[in-house]
Simulated scan of single mutants.
Amino acid sequence: MNLQLFADEKTEKATPKKRDETRKKGQVPKSTDVNTSLMMLIVFLFLWMYGGEMIISMFADMQREMFTNYLITEVTAESVAELFLTISTQALLAVLPLMLLAAFAGTFGSFIQVGAMFTTEPLKAKLNKLDPIKGFKRIFSARSLVELVKSVLKISLVGATVVFIIWTHLDEVLLLSQKSVTDAMSVIGWLTVLMGLAVAILLMVLSIPDYIYQRYDHEKQIRMSKKDIRDEHKNIEGDPRIKSKRKQKQMELAMQRMMQEIPNADVVITNPTHFAVVLKYDEAKAEAPFVVAKGVDFSAQRIKKRAQEHNIPMVENRVLARALYHQTDIGQQVPTDLFKSVAEVLAYVYRLKEAHSANSHYKN
Rank of each mutant, 00 (worst) to 15 (best):
I242Y: 00
H310A: 14
V34T: 08
F118I: 13
G51H: 03
Q27H: 10
M62A: 13
N359A: 12
Y70R: 09
Q256T: 09
E9W: 11
T192S: 14
A286L: 03
A60H: 07
M251W: 02
E172W: 02
T76P: 13
A276T: 01
I208D: 09
F275G: 04
T86I: 10
G26V: 02
L41T: 03
K179V: 07
M49W: 06
I42A: 12
V342G: 03
T107K: 02
T273K: 00
K226L: 07
L96N: 15
A288Y: 13
D266A: 00
E9S: 08
M204Q: 05
K227V: 10
V342R: 03
Q256H: 11
V146R: 15
I112L: 02
F136K: 07
I222W: 01
F44H: 01
Q221C: 05
N317F: 11
T328Y: 01
F136G: 11
V193Y: 11
G331T: 05
T182I: 04
R318T: 14
K25C: 15
A125R: 03
P97Q: 11
R19H: 09
G238V: 08
F44V: 05
L98Y: 06
A94I: 14
L148R: 04
Y213W: 12
M195K: 08
H310G: 15
L175I: 08
A81P: 10
G159S: 09
S341D: 15
R143C: 08
L93R: 04
L100H: 12
L123R: 03
P263V: 10
E147W: 05
L338F: 03
W190N: 01
P240W: 03
E82S: 08
R306H: 02
Q214F: 07
P209R: 01
V146M: 05
S360C: 07
T32Q: 10
D228A: 03
K150R: 10
F111M: 13
A300T: 01
Q90K: 15
D337H: 05
S180H: 04
V296C: 07
P240S: 06
V80L: 12
L153I: 07
K124Y: 09
P29E: 14
V75R: 15
V205L: 13
E121I: 04
R302N: 10
N69Q: 12
K179A: 01
G135Q: 03
M54G: 02
K124C: 06
M314I: 14
K353G: 02
